[in-house]
Design a protein around this nucleic acid. Structure first.
Lengths: 259, 259
DNA sequence: CGCTACCTTGAGCGCCCTCAACTAAAGTGG
DNA sequence: CCACTTTAGTTGAGGGCGCTCAAGGTAGCG
């Protein structure tokens, strides 16, 4: 296992444990090459031809990050895309005066880091301990010429992400505080279900401040909405980072504006 | 010219002038095949090999729509992607109670209609008289296997759109009313410049209500912000649909939160 | 036990929404 | 060509949702 990581290092000089000097990233010791990591059908390379997978495994490398580590910053040269193997990552943009907008959360199986003209448009930061599969973008482009299935897979991922953005823009532009929180919880629950994690009790690895900066509210408003849902019996909060959704339909009704 | 449209009709039975029975779409008479329309370097197929272009021209068809025509609705089967040749298109999602969020405006050279699992995630409606180049998605996927440059181009377009979304989510989640309007005007001006249209006086083909539903405000608030910018000498409003930006730097400062 | 970080709860205010009136411009029919 | 109607945009007055500011609670950790 460790040997395959070393192989990756030999073929991709960028994979030397430093990611632009940001964060104490260290090569992982427990992950194998593409197709052998434990992502199963969630893996980017799942279902690819053996030759494609071996090509990917030669340029891929697996990294670990600790909470608050920065994977890359807005403006950094965009050298690689990332696939989350374990843990949670948040991605955000900052305004000069410190206002922050978290544009996405990424979990097991999710990919991020696609960027234009070689510069990341946002900062990526680990929320929990994180394992990621890193794919150098340039190599990916070269491989795509011989294995068009790779680019098709990328198109699929990006299309899904675009659909998510449409929904989130609707949330931010037109929904009330309670509708936003309800939508957020249901979306997270749905994504957990799709990736095979228990959808209830739902795990909230991010703090209230992160949630607030994602759905365009303040910490206090998020907290009040959660407490209100709890009082109404729509959900339980065994701990601040765990939500048991009791009445999904009622929550859905609120999320869709019938509350 | 008309003959090439007829050719397209022969090869693509979907291109019969009806787009799901929605809107009085009629085949255009003035547009040629890919590479011969007047989009120049803005065209999706610009720079492709001659063989690729001829393949595209065989599945492509050009359509015209009038203001308020619906190109497709949210939930419709997603059969094709569109490239705007002339005019302006808005794309939006509706909530059950009528709240509307416009998730994007599309002008000359812009593409839209990429969708997952065969269903459009939003409704597309013509703002002005519109000419579009319509490319059936399935054929596009088939062609991509022999001409990977097509999918690479799609990836580029989608990457750019994703970056736009990140910016817009920041706008909706964290910016004040004036910051939103300033950002909106500058973004529109920048896009006009990139596509070769005069960036000033900037043309606003969409109404105040459309702007409001795009940046998460009300008509009144948009109007007040514009009047305020005018009073401060940042811009002129020769007509409601034309904006002459007098002080781009000052407007930029406001857009970025330094106002 | 004290410290820190995070979450929750409360009180008051402000930005933007709501409601309404007014103006301007464009279409309509005689 | 001109009254009438309709639609879009602007301006004003008042109210409410969510923000701000502040205090209190709770869990993790030395």
């Amino acid at each position: 296992m460790t040997r395959s990581t070393v192989t990756a290092l030999r073929h991709d000089p960028v994979c030397d444990g430093t990611t632009g000097g940001v964060g104490p990233a260290t090569p992982a010791e427990s992950q194998g090459p593409c197709g052998q990591c434990d992502l199963g059908t969630l893996a980017f390379c799942d279902g690819f031809a053996a030759r494609t997978i071996s090509s990917l495994s030669r340029v891929q490398c697996t990294l670990r990050f600790e909470p608050h580590d920065t994977l890359f910053r807005e403006g950094d040269q965009g050298l690689a895309v990332y696939s989350v193997v374990s843990g949670a990552v948040k991605v955000y943009k900052l305004m000069p005066d410190g206002r922050r907008q978290i544009t996405g959360f990424f979990f097991r199986g999710d990919m991020f880091g696609f960027c234009l003209d070689g510069t990341y448009a946002y900062t990526a930061e680990a929320i929990t301990p994180v394992g990621v599969c890193r794919l150098p973008m340039q190599r990916l482009g070269e491989l795509a010429e011989t294995a068009p299935e790779i680019q098709y897979r990328i198109v699929l991922r990006m299309t899904a992400k675009l659909a998510q953005f449409h929904d989130h823009v609707l949330l931010l532009g037109r929904k009330t505080a309670r509708e936003r929180v309800a939508t957020f919880l249901l979306t997270l629950s749905d994504r957990a279900r799709r990736r095979g994690d228990p959808p209830s009790p739902l795990s909230l690895p991010m703090g209230r401040a992160d949630i607030a900066d994602h759905i365009g509210l303040t910490v206090e408003t998020v907290s009040r909405a959660m407490t209100w849902f709890k009082r109404e019996g729509l959900l339980d909060l065994p701990s601040p980072s765990q939500v048991a959704i009791r009445q999904p339909e009622a929550l859905r009704a609120i999320a869709d504006g019938a509350g």
